[in-house]
Amino acid sequence: MVLNQEEIKQIIPHRAPFLFLDEVLECEVAKRTKAVWRIREDLFCFKGHFPGNPILPGVLITEALAQAGAVAILQDEKYKGRLAVFGGIDRVRFRGMVKPGDDLVLETEILRLSAMGGKGKVKATVDGKTVCEGEILFVLTKQD
Rank of each mutant, 00 (worst) to 15 (best):
D103F: 12
K129D: 08
D90F: 10
I8C: 02
V85Q: 11
Y79V: 07
V59R: 10
P13I: 07
S114P: 00
K142I: 04
D76R: 09
L60I: 15
D127P: 07
G118S: 05
M116W: 14
A72N: 04
H14G: 05
D103R: 15
F138P: 04
P57W: 12
K121V: 01
L104Q: 00
V139G: 08
L19W: 03
P54L: 05
R91S: 12
I136E: 13
F18C: 06
F18M: 13
P51N: 04
F20R: 01
E26S: 11
T125N: 06
A30R: 05
A68D: 01
R95N: 12
L3N: 00
G87T: 06
C45T: 12
R93L: 12
G58F: 11
V36L: 03
K123Y: 03
K31V: 13
E6D: 10
K80E: 14
E135Y: 15
M116Q: 15
Y79Q: 09
F46E: 04
P13G: 03
I12H: 02
L83A: 04
L25F: 12
I11Q: 02
P51K: 05
L25Q: 10
H14F: 05
I73G: 01
A115P: 10
F18D: 04
M116I: 14
F44T: 10
G118N: 05
K121H: 09
T130I: 05
R15I: 05
P17D: 06
T62P: 12
T130Q: 04
G101N: 04
V122K: 07
I55H: 11
R112M: 11
V29G: 01
F44E: 07
R82A: 13
S114W: 08
L111G: 01
D90H: 10
P100G: 01
I8L: 04
I12Y: 00
R112D: 14
G88S: 08
L25P: 11
L19D: 00
C45R: 05
G69P: 12
L111P: 00
K142H: 10
E28P: 00
G118L: 05
Q143P: 01
G128V: 03
P54G: 02
H14V: 10
V59T: 12
L104V: 07
R93W: 14
F94E: 02
G58V: 06
K78Y: 05
E26A: 13
H49E: 01
D42F: 07
D42L: 09
F94A: 00
